[in-house]
């Protein structure tokens, strides 16, 4: 099986199966990232699809100066931000927070679902930049330099955003 680099090169040359392999590799990570940003499964699914479609359409422009995953997260971050801007509001947790897929897990109880909903709500309630920074750092383990690249801010600004997000989360979840 080709490594990621091989898949990327094949995908750039138009190999759809190679692109599909890359999608399978990243789809849940991107979905999870967007889900924590928007707190809405349906929106997260739509934006994940939009992200991979944009990646497909712009593969020829991917010059591999950044990693493929960073490039994908950047597209996903832009899609998410544009969605939030379009919706003219900061995303709040919908009433009856939908955890449909969690119902499939036999060990999932109401308490666990409520706990997850509270956590997603706490994160989605952060200001956008803090939310984005926190997600990329804590959950996606990105380096601050990479996050700075994704967000178009300085490394020190990402550290500040992260620290502020942490302080708020400690207060909300403490």
């Amino acid at each position: 099986m080709p490594d990621e680099q091989g898949l990327i090169e094949k995908a750039i040359k138009g190999d759809k199966e190679a692109f599909a392999s890359l999608v399978r590799q990243y789809q849940n990570r991107i979905f999870g990232f967007i889900m924590r940003m928007t707190a809405n499964r349906e929106t997260a699914l739509d934006l994940t699809q939009d992200t991979f479609l944009a990646a497909y359409q712009n593969l020829s422009g991917f010059r591999q100066e950044a990693s493929f995953s960073t490039w994908l997260y950047q597209i996903a971050a832009n899609k998410t931000r544009n969605f939030i801007k379009r919706s003219k509001r900061e995303v709040s947790l919908p009433v009856g927070y939908d955890q449909a897929s969690e119902d499939d897990r036999p060990d999932t109880g109401l308490e666990k679902k409520e706990q997850e909903a509270l956590l997603v709500e706490a994160i989605s309630g952060l200001p956008h930049k803090q939310r984005l920074t926190f997600n990329l750092r804590y959950f996606e383990q990105m380096k601050f330099k990479e996050i700075a690249g994704v967000m178009g801010v300085s490394v020190s600004a990402t550290k500040t955003n992260f620290a502020e997000a942490l302080a708020k989360l400690k207060k909300r979840l403490g």
Binding site: N28, G32, R41, L45, A100, S101, L173
Partner: peptide, 17 residues
Amino acid sequence: LGAKLDPIAEISMSPEE
């Protein structure tokens, strides 16, 4: 705080999704 955040560290699509 890290332990509290653990439950949402991995969010995946359901098979149907």
